[in-house]
């Protein structure tokens, strides 16, 4: 005879919702350049600040920036902040192993990129000030994706991860005001 079952009080149901967002002209341009292997930003004429990805305006002055303000920045940079992630599992999560997630200030940019994965270095040696360089995906693997405001997802669709470049560490004072 079957044992008496506990009453069902909760069921798991995975829902999905597909939606379309319109990419901006500057977002499309940033993505196209990434697919060519170049990282671009906009340099505000008013503040001199370089935004990567370009936003079409300067956050600090509110003034517009256009294709005329486009500059190319390096694919080398410096780690300004980081953590080591133990991935939380949820529907859609593909990460299972610990990894380093960092903010990276690219040479020539005024604020750091988020969500950069650092590899080829032991966890305990990752530090603010570490110089890193991009490891690009092969051209055929680079994909168009959403350009979010931090640029992390667009970057990671074309750059696999970041590795130590072997250059000497940056002076901490040089990045003290550029964590973001």
């Amino acid at each position: 005879m079957a044992e008496q079952q506990a009453p069902v009080v909760m069921m798991e149901e995975i829902v999905s919702l597909e939606y379309t967002t319109l990419a901006t002209d500057v977002g499309i341009r940033f993505m196209d350049c990434l697919i060519e292997g170049r990282i671009i930003g906009h340099k505000s004429k008013q503040s001199g600040l370089v935004y990567v990805p370009p936003k079409g305006y300067c956050l600090m002055t509110g003034s517009p920036t256009t294709a005329d303000d486009e500059v190319e920045v390096s694919d080398h940079g410096v780690v300004t902040g980081f953590t080591i992630i133990e991935p939380i599992q949820y529907p859609g999560q593909e990460e299972t192993e610990r990894y380093v997630q960092a903010q990276v200030l690219l040479d020539g940019a005024s604020s750091a990129l988020g969500l950069c994965r650092i590899q080829d270095i032991p966890f305990e040696e990752v530090r603010a000030g570490l110089r890193v360089k991009a490891v690009w995906r092969p051209p055929e693997d680079r994909q168009q994706t959403i350009v979010d405001s931090w640029g992390g997802r667009a970057i990671s669709s074309c750059i696999q991860h970041w590795v130590p470049s072997g250059e000497p560490d940056a002076d901490p004072a040089s990045i003290a005001k550029n964590m973001y």
Partner: peptide, 12 residues
């Protein structure tokens, strides 16, 4: 965590 990640992988 799903909500914060927009349903994509890599949410922390």
């Amino acid at each position: 965590t799903w909500g914060l990640s927009g349903g994509r992988s890599g949410g922390t």
